[in-house]
Design a protein around this nucleic acid. Structure first.
Lengths: 230, 230
DNA sequence: GCCTTGCAAGAGCATTGCTCTCGAATTGGA
DNA sequence: TCCAATTCGAGAGCAATGCTCTTGCAAGGC
């Protein structure tokens, strides 16, 4: 089948349409996505879906991949719009973009940062997409370090095994950042997603009611903790 | 029906047994719990379960409630074993207990801190149970504050709405702790659960391989960040 | 032009949550 | 002690699910 034959084009459109309808269903019904319901909305019999996705899991995998890429893209785009030497603002832009994306698509966020789908195992394809977002943070730390703009910290050195773990991550996304600073960066990263997950998953109900403001405040605190100049 | 008639006792045992089997199924099949499978394991027909739980959601609610209480109890117990004036150690005990509990029962952890079960809405009963764990942290901050052992911080004051939010939480679990310290405490709390969720949900795969050590290191850092004396 | 390939439809299977009815067992008051 | 009320498990049944298989039809490349 040629790449741009009629069949190939129709197939690509069909695949996209299935994913879009599935995303809509995800937003209303949550994670237990019904293939049959998607098929109904598409005006097609349920078995027809299997021409495009071998199983429900494969559809989910496609949605997960798209979600990682959309989130990563959002973060990249928001960060790129900030002046290069406004390191704290770059961090705030990334954090804000990630939260905004999650708040707008809570079920897609749940798909990638919530409980793993039962029986489902992430294929290797998702790994690259999953690291897109954290690479943006790496870029900020790296730039700030090279520019000598990162405040040093007096944290005790990391224990040996963790030191190796952190160094390996650092080598991939921010090679010149000192280990304890890298550890603080990862801590801020974890705090960012902890905050978003608490919000999306309802853990902040009746506790923190003004979430925009609280989130922004906590992320500014994280910027100071990392050592990014304001 | 009298409280300790044969029927009442059998009923209580039956209810517990159903929950225990359900927990076992949770561990193998994940969140999509099958009532019929539980019934089969119990050697009973599926409709019999409905004598004890009106629906699958009600069973899940019971499991969620138990999970919150078990986690809260774990945290309380671990913290109670530490000398009262070893504030940082009390925090580390709480953090360690929560992580240990989660690592031992990842699916129960997912039930309470992962993506909400689709279509499921938490009843008010769970709210009290859900706050048990964070109250332990509140106790530590309160004690340390009253003893004058908490290092002050020079964080900028919280914006007005967040200030009210944080004050309301503070009033309930740690009335004498200053707002910016309370905010740091919440930040550490979020970081704790962010770290555990990342680990349980597989976000640390191929990244942080020595999780015990890394977790302990990050929690020590959080203790310093809060201002707890070591 | 023909033969291979891709596709949707439909029937079918095993499974699910849940409801309803029907007998049997337990209970507690008369 | 007996009897009506309550509680319980079994079983059939309904609508829905994911997935497989077969059957015809349409598009594609030689």
């Amino acid at each position: 089948m040629k790449a741009n034959s009629i069949r190939a084009r129709v197939r690509a459109e069909m695949t996209d349409e299935i994913k879009e309808i599935a995303r809509r269903h995800l937003a209303t019904d949550g994670a237990n996505l019904s293939l049959r319901a998607v098929a109904r909305d598409l005006g097609v019999v349920s078995s027809a879906i299997y021409r495009y996705f071998a199983s429900r899991d494969e559809l989910l995998t496609a949605l997960i991949l798209d979600a990682y890429n959309a989130l990563g893209g959002s973060a990249e785009e928001a960060e790129a719009a900030v002046p290069r030497d406004a390191y704290a603002d770059r961090w705030l832009a990334v954090a804000g973009a990630i939260r905004d994306w999650a708040v707008a698509r809570p079920h897609e966020y749940a798909l990638i940062y919530g409980s793993p789908v039962p029986g489902y195992h992430a294929p290797e394809d998702t790994v690259v997409a999953a690291t897109r977002a954290v690479r943006v943070l790496g870029g900020i730390l790296q730039d700030a370090t090279v520019a000598g703009a990162l405040a040093p910290n007096d944290d005790p050195p990391l224990p040996p095994a963790s030191s190796a773990d952190v160094a390996r991550v650092g080598a991939m996304i921010a090679p010149d950042v000192p280990p304890t600073t890298m550890a603080r960066g990862l801590s801020a990263w974890v705090a960012l997603f902890g905050q978003v997950s608490f919000e999306i998953f309802g853990q902040l109900r009746n506790t923190i009611n003004h979430r925009d403001e609280f989130f922004a405040h906590q992320m500014r605190a994280q910027a100071r903790y990392i050592g990014l100049p304001t």
